[in-house]
């Protein structure tokens, strides 16, 4: 369902070139929950950004649902992200002036759903993450764990093909981290494809597969029991 072929990413700073991804071949099937692990600077987040079309690789191919994404222009990539991808960022990435329900409803409105339908779907998503009582709170009035749960609700409310999560528990305490990971597990059970970058072993074990990256290459892909 998502496949990368010989994916590379090189950053240039003046004359200095840093090769962060050095030819990654990777495949995730529909409905899989894959954790990407690796030490700091291994290239795991960079890999996630390329796969999730937030960045453009230096070379190689990314095929999602049979579509070759390297041929897409910016507008098409944006449309692809809107309809097919969901994102959870390490620092929640909520819009500070929107309430919890507005944050979740925004991508749905952009999908041209009418306001009633968009807000009803946003409400369902927030109920699912246990925040049905915090709909009108703006992010600054929510705890870190609650903000991340809003972010997760925003990521799956529009029923994306793939949910990408970049270190979703890195800023959270144990209790909040467990809550977020339980939501991921629940979504996975319902058939949601999830690709998550983490450096926490205990949460990686909740995924079906663990892909380990080191020095810009995938060094192992293992199935969790």
């Amino acid at each position: 369902m998502i496949e990368t072929r010989n994916l590379t990413k090189t950053f240039k700073h003046g004359n200095i070139e840093t090769h962060v991804l050095k030819g990654i071949d990777f495949r995730a099937e529909s409905g899989e929950f894959i954790a990407i692990m690796g030490r700091s600077g291994a290239g795991k987040s960079t890999f996630l950004y390329q796969m999730s079309l937030l960045d453009v690789p230096t070379s190689g191919e990314i095929v999602i649902d049979g579509e070759h994404t390297h041929a897409m222009n910016q507008a098409k990539r944006a449309r692809f992200r809107l309809f097919r991808c969901g994102y959870v960022f390490q620092d929640y990435a909520l819009l500070p002036e929107l309430s919890a329900i507005e944050n979740v409803a925004l991508p749905l409105l952009m999908q041209n759903l009418n306001k009633t339908k968009a807000f009803s779907r946003a409400y369902e998503a927030l109920e699912k993450v246990g925040l049905g009582h915090r709909l009108e709170n703006i992010p600054s009035n929510l705890s870190g764990g609650e903000q991340q749960r809003v972010s997760v609700a925003r990521a799956f409310a529009h029923r994306p093909k793939i949910l990408f999560a970049d270190e979703p528990t890195a800023n959270l305490d144990n209790e909040s981290s467990a809550l977020v990971m339980n939501i991921f597990r629940e979504l996975h059970r319902e058939g949601q494809t999830i690709i998550m970058v983490t450096h926490e072993e205990q949460y990686a074990r909740m995924a079906g597969k663990i892909a380990k990256i080191d020095d810009g290459r995938i060094i192992s892909v293992t199935n969790n029991g």
């Binding site: 937030l54 944006a78 992200r81 994102y87 960022f89 909520l94 819009l95 925004l106 991508p107 952009m110």
Partner: peptide, 16 residues
């Protein structure tokens, strides 16, 4: 700028 980036990341069009 960060939030504009997030808006674009979640698929909100630049024109909007």
């Amino acid at each position: 700028r960060k939030f504009i980036g997030i808006l674009k990341a979640i698929g909100i069009r630049g024109q909007a």
